[in-house]
């Protein structure tokens, strides 16, 4: 480090100057600076004005079904992910090579994460779903940062530009699909581990209502009234609980969709306003956001799954 100090400082200074020049050029000559200073933006810096389209756009149609750019991106994600995984786990050995170590690292980290929350008993049940959600969301998010996303495209019927690839997470259907799968898995685990009636019991506590009616038949008016009242309140709370499970789908969907769409729009806008290098930090931010969103989606599925698998601490009271 000490030896090549002068040289590396020179290089560092040079790189910094170049970066600054690029940044200033972008800042002054880009749409932001030019509109403020009244200079005309040179054509080579004129990035097309971003137009935000929330629904994904169809690229071509197969017998009435429109293959959208987000669908293509999600296929790309699957191909990349499976290709990578296939290469890594083609020859599994007890003493791992580099690629196998990578695969093991991913699986082991995720498995430990799941084990940490779900415990040894349920980890293997929950793990595949959680890991798949994590890898899918993460790969979708990271692939979307590659340059060919949003740049290569076709011209649509009305003359608008339609990119061939668009971040799959920014199509509401994809977060919704994962949210539905997460919901179905959570409810399935709950039903399977507890059985239908016991699982229903975790929502609705009929105990107090029943006790109330028993008291009524015995002629005890006061406990009967309070029992029946609280019984109905319990049922109402149970209804809210059921509702909250469905609301999870919506919150899952819009959390991911919102974050990813906002990130994409942020990148587009920054790139439009200040062309050249100003968007690089935002790419870093997007890396973080993508990781976080994948983590949150997988983590929440994990937590909901654990709650469904392991019954609540408060068992329905059978004795009055």
């Amino acid at each position: 480090m000490k030896m090549g100090c002068g040289c590396s400082i020179k290089i560092l200074a040079g790189v910094t100057i170049i970066l600054l020049v690029l940044l200033l050029t972008g800042l002054i000559l880009g749409p932001l600076g030019s509109s403020l200073l009244g200079i005309k933006t040179p054509s080579f810096l004129n990035v097309t004005k971003p137009h935000v389209e929330l629904p994904s756009e169809g690229i071509f149609h197969v017998s009435g079904f429109s293959i959208t750019n987000t669908l293509i991106a999600s296929w790309l994600t699957i191909i990349v992910l499976i290709g990578l995984v296939y290469v890594c786990t083609r020859k599994m050995k007890l003493i791992p090579g580099r690629l196998q170590s990578l695969a093991e690292l991913i699986v082991e980290t995720l498995l430990n994460f799941v084990k940490g929350v779900a415990g040894e008993k349920h980890a293997r049940t929950i793990f595949p779903v959680v890991a798949t959600i994590f890898l899918y969301v993460l790969t979708n998010a990271y692939l979307a940062l590659l340059p060919f996303f949003g740049t290569i495209g076709i011209t649509g019927h009305d003359g608008t530009f339609i990119p061939l690839f668009r971040a799959a997470n920014t199509d509401i259907n994809l977060p919704l699909s994962i949210a539905i799968i997460s919901f179905v898995c959570v409810e399935f685990w709950g039903l399977r581990s507890l059985g239908f009636f016991r699982y229903l019991n975790t929502f609705f506590n009929f105990g107090q209502l029943r006790d109330g009616f028993i008291s009524l038949f015995k002629g005890k008016i006061r406990p009967a009234i309070s029992g029946i009242m609280f019984g109905f309140i319990n049922i109402f709370v149970g209804g809210l609980e059921v509702l909250s499970h469905f609301i999870r789908i919506i919150s899952f969907t819009f959390r991911l969709f919102g974050n990813m769409t906002a990130g994409e729009i942020l990148l587009l806008v920054v790139t439009f306003l200040v062309p050249l290098i100003a968007s690089i930090p935002f790419y870093g931010l997007e890396l973080l956001v993508g990781f976080l969103q994948a983590m949150i989606f997988a983590g929440l599925t994990l937590v909901f799954g654990v709650i469904a698998l392991a019954p609540h601490a408060e068992e329905p009271a059978h004795t009055s």
Binding site: L71, V85, T89, P128, T132, D171, L174, S177, I178, I181
Partner: peptide, 18 residues
């Protein structure tokens, strides 16, 4: 289609990774 996609990915990851 996205749900099917996810299920396919789930299956393939199960076979090739997990």
């Amino acid at each position: 289609v996205f749900v099917i996609n996810f299920i396919i990915l789930f299956g393939l990851l199960g076979i090739f990774l997990y």
